[in-house]
Design a protein around this nucleic acid. Structure first.
Length: 546
RNA sequence: GCGCCCGUAGCUCAAUUGGAUAGAGCAACAGCCUUCUAAGCUGUGGGUUGAAGGUUCGAGUCCUUUCGGGCGCACCA
């Protein structure tokens, strides 16, 4: 397909040459105000100083010398203080439509990240209870990013790190055993700091009815270990089921215990020591992350000889690099904001490419119901579990809402709004546009057109504006990957939907002259493809009826 | 006290590496269904981008200070 930016770039450089102006880094951007055109360049501003002339005069000179392909650019002009604005030719926009029909859903895909091997880690919630809504946001963002990177040609794996060893597993086993023994009729208190959730009660009841007293007959230590592992397996399975329902599959569920089997944490510690980056203080072992840009040093081994979570984490990230990934992305909750600095420091100490580790700190989720904050209290019986949230609002609405804001911004999730089938709900607004298109084909009893249809009759402003929007998807995907945030897709989807609804009201499809009807049907089909693809990148379905 | 994030219309939010007159939706008001789904469309009003400096031809965007809000500050994970 014709590439306007490349064409414009070449033309401007040629004009600079003709005018004996110095070559500069010519950039193009989309003007904020559509009345300024489709593409603009600020090249005159860059040259103003060098050429000692007013930007506007330089722009006029360049503009005059431009030789442009009229099937791509229909007009150009100098505006403002020195911008040169360009307007796409209808022929080019029609070509965009034809391109979409020819390529189908993959029209916006690229290979610009071909060769990249990315490991994306997200959710990684401790398997000590059900998934909550913060994990749900991480799941939506992470899986959308996975789809986006795939569309750009990268090889990307998603991974869930299962914390199946260490203190909290022991504590989980103890809490579980206490419930179990109590249920059996030998009351034991849950240990201090233990897990109190009701879900553990249910688990204990279930265990008694299925396995009777077998854990009672073991030694307490053995029972604690067995029950701890059992609880973890149950929760891991539960998380997997919930996430699959959320359309979030993982390439791998990586167990922390795998690292311990290979003695990876000790190996990492040895390497850190060898690098001269650790020291002892008050019996504890510290890592000198401060020397590598962090603002404090962190303990990797406590004075009673246990590793802190930081050390296995380091070993885990070493392991990721060793598996051949050249880019790591971690999505973590807001309470982990110290992680990027300290893990970055650890990677640098180990001479690993710290700049290839990208950490997304996802801000919190405020759950609302009709504008009122839902207390995150399990006792109150309010929704806090991801599973319940999905049951109440549905997968489509949940996935869309969780990526509606930038990852750096706290997210208000209004349950009633997500459920409402009203004009306020952006999910339905977008899905409605898709369904309306399907309805046109149903009503006309027509098969969707293919790329052989002539789009030349498309001249109406609303038709061309719709094609302009469809053209943007590759850039939107590229941008989402670059900033590692899917939220830009939601903005684009809403704009495409809005433009389609506008087109729908201004331009009739069925019953027009045959050539125009065919062209408009083709435009509808292209829009449908684009909407479905955009939604699919967010894991949201596009149905033919509402 | 230290660290991270945020502050844009009454409300919820956009604004791509700094670009032109800061845009949508909701809410308010006025219109559009015998014609492809009104879950839609058209129009009107609404702003000192928290504040003050600085850099720049140009700042919502970058820097400094400051005010306000959220979260986190363990030899827990």
């Amino acid at each position: 397909m014709k590439e306007p930016i490349q064409h414009l770039h070449d033309s401007v450089l040629q004009a600079l040459k003709t005018l004996a102006l110095p070559e500069v880094d010519v950039r193009f951007e989309k003007p904020k105000d559509p009345s300024h055109g489709d593409i603009a360049t600020n090249v005159a501003f860059l040259l103003a100083k060098l050429a000692r002339k007013a930007p506007r005069d330089i722009a006029a000179l360049i503009s005059e010398k431009l030789s442009l392909d009229s099937t791509i650019i229909s007009s150009h002009s100098v505006a403002g203080a020195g911008f040169i604005n360009f307007v796409f030719a209808p022929a080019y926009l029609q070509e965009v439509g034809r391109w979409i029909l020819e390529k189908g859903a993959a029209y916006a895909d690229s290979q610009d990240l071909a060769g990249e091997r990315i490991l994306l880690e997200f959710v990684s919630a401790n398997p000590s209870g059900p998934l909550n809504v913060v994990s749900a946001r991480a799941a939506a963002v992470g899986d959308s990013l996975r789809r986006i990177f795939e569309a750009r040609g990268a090889h990307i794996d998603s991974e869930y790190y299962v914390n199946d060893s260490g203190n909290q597993v022991r504590l989980l086993g103890e809490s579980y055993r206490a419930r179990y023994e109590t249920e059996l009729g030998y009351p034991i208190d849950v240990p201090a700091g233990g897990y109190l959730g009701r879900y553990l009660d249910d688990l204990a009841i279930d265990t008694v009815s299925r396995e009777r007293s077998i854990y009672h007959e073991m030694s307490p230590d053995k029972a604690i270990e067995k029950l701890g592992q059992k609880a973890i397996e149950i929760y891991v399975q539960q998380h997997r089921t919930t996430l699959e329902k959320f359309r979030v599959p993982f390439s791998r569920w990586f167990r922390e215990s795998e690292l311990h089997d290979e003695n990876a944490s000790q190996a990492a510690l040895d390497r850190l020591e060898k690098a001269g980056a650790v020291y002892q203080e008050d019996g504890a072992t510290y890592l000198r992350t401060e020397d590598y840009g962090d603002n404090k040093n962190w303990v990797v081994k406590t004075s009673d000889g246990r590793w802190t979570y930081f050390l296995p984490d380091i070993a885990y990230h070493v392991n990721k690099f060793e598996r051949g990934y050249n880019r790591l992305i971690d999505i973590l909750g807001p309470d982990h904001h110290t992680f990027p600095l300290k893990m970055g420091a650890a990677m640098r100490i180990l001479k690993l490419p710290a700049d290839k580790l990208h950490v997304i700190i996802l801000q919190q989720v405020n759950l609302l119901r009709d504008g009122v904050t839902v207390k995150m209290s399990k006792r109150a019986g309010e929704i806090v579990e991801m599973k319940e949230l999905l049951d109440e609002v549905g997968v489509d609405a949940a996935r869309f809402f969780f990526v509606l804001r930038r990852t750096t911004t706290p997210l208000d999730f209004d349950i009633e709004l997500a459920k409402s089938h009203s004009e306020e709900n952006p999910v339905y607004y977008v899905q409605y546009a898709h369904a309306r298109i399907a309805s046109i084909f149903r009503k006309g009893q027509l098969e969707p057109p293919d790329a052989s249809v002539s789009l030349e009759p498309l001249k109406h402003t609303e038709e061309l504006n719709l094609l302009r929007r469809l053209r943007e998807l590759p850039e939107v995907i590229e941008e989402a990957g670059r900033v590692m945030d899917p939220h830009g897709l939601t903005t684009w989807l809403r704009e495409v939907a809005a433009q389609f609804h506008r087109f729908y009201h201004h331009c009739r499809v069925l019953g027009e002259q045959p050539d125009l009807q065919s062209a408009r049907l083709a435009l509808c089909r292209a829009t449908q493809i684009a909407l479905a693809r955009g939604l699919d990148l967010l894991g949201v379905s596009a149905s033919d009826t509402m």
